[in-house]
Design a protein around this nucleic acid. Structure first.
Length: 319
DNA sequence: CGGGTTTGACCGGCGC
DNA sequence: GCGCCGGTCAAACCCG
């Protein structure tokens, strides 16, 4: 796919999409990492969803997640921590020895999770926020409301609650990030108040009804918002699995809803190990020994959670 | 030819 | 009721 062959009016599928393909081809061919460091900076806002995912019977599968050759940072925190965690990652970026210093493909990701609304929704000020307000208003309805209406409202709420959504905010030039699963695009819509369209994808695996929306933030065009809905009921396609981890990458994780501050870096240049997970951050963190010991235990717990949430990250990479 | 993308039409929810 | 908007459908198209 080249820029020349694409419709230039559809800017989302020109240069950006080519970046996506380039990065993947580097990964597949196991080439030296030349597209520069990229950091996925993830923030899970809702502790409820975090625990849902943790206890999910589909623990081996779950949500898709960007895993192009890059460094990934997961942030699991309350909403207040969202931007501070994000800033923390930015300010410590220079400490992450990931690869070359190229600018292409550089990215950071934040993650939010919500049963009914997503960070992306709030980010764009869309009507899901209004819906939330409306639902909250419905909670305070007067007694003279007909019981039928109440039942209807409750049903609607339950349905929305079941729609498990997780949003990733990724600072990247890549629009559709690789997550190991196969997606079929089924729609694209212009987003109100945004020059950037929103794309709709569905998992191509039969009987898997996972969907995702991908849009670029109008406030910060360098940020791509990916929203996943529900969970995969199947493993990651094997052909993708090997491709995804053949290139060097690093991943750091912060789960501040489980611990005040925990942050570690996963280096995927070799097989994941606890040493990889727990050793690296201290090089850049100015903390005392006791604190480190305490953090290690918290990291262990967070690590288990992360494994459940993003199993694909932890598949072993065979040489 | 099969699978993915594009894109205008359509639908339902919601606010006015 | 009407218009707006997000989400989805599906025919046409593209590509390997």
């Amino acid at each position: 796919m080249s820029n020349e062959t694409k419709d230039l009016n559809n800017y989302h599928y020109t240069s950006s999409y080519d970046h996506y393909n380039n990065i993947n081809s580097q990964s597949v061919m196991n080439l030296p990492y030349v597209s520069g460091p990229s950091t996925y900076n993830a923030n899970i806002i809702s502790p409820q969803i975090g625990s849902d995912l943790h206890s999910s019977p589909q623990g081996a599968y779950g949500l898709g997640f960007e895993l192009s050759p890059s460094s990934t940072e997961f942030f699991n925190s309350q909403e207040n921590d969202f931007y501070s965690a994000y800033n923390y990652n930015i300010s410590h970026k220079s400490h992450e020895v990931v690869g070359g210093g190229g600018a292409i493909g550089e990215s950071e990701t934040k993650v939010s999770a919500s049963p009914s609304s997503s960070e992306a929704d709030h980010h764009n000020g869309e009507d899901s926020g209004k819906s939330l307000m409306k639902r909250e208003a419905c909670d305070g309805l007067k007694d003279d409301q007909s019981s039928q209406k109440v039942v209807k409202t409750k049903k609607k709420e339950e349905k929305k609650q079941r729609e498990q959504r997780v949003s990733f905010m990724t600072k990247t030039e890549v629009d559709h990030l690789e997550d190991g699963y196969r997606w079929r695009k089924y729609g694209q819509k212009a987003v109100k108040n945004s020059p950037y369209p929103r794309s709709y994808y569905r998992c191509t695996t039969q009987k898997c009804n996972v969907k995702k929306r991908v849009e670029r933030s109008y406030q910060d065009p360098t940020v791509v918002i990916t929203t996943y809905e529900s969970q995969h009921n199947h493993p990651i396609p094997t052909s993708r699995r090997t491709a995804m981890f053949s290139g060097p990458a690093a991943c750091s994780y912060n789960s501040s809803s489980l611990s005040p501050v925990s942050n570690f870096i996963i280096n995927t240049q070799r097989t994941f190990s606890q040493d990889d997970l727990f050793g690296a951050p201290y090089a850049s963190m100015n903390v005392n020994a006791n604190y480190q010991q305490q953090q290690n235990q918290e990291f262990q717990r967070d690590y288990e959670l992360l494994k459940d949430m993003f199993p694909s990250v932890f598949f072993k990479q065979e040489p």
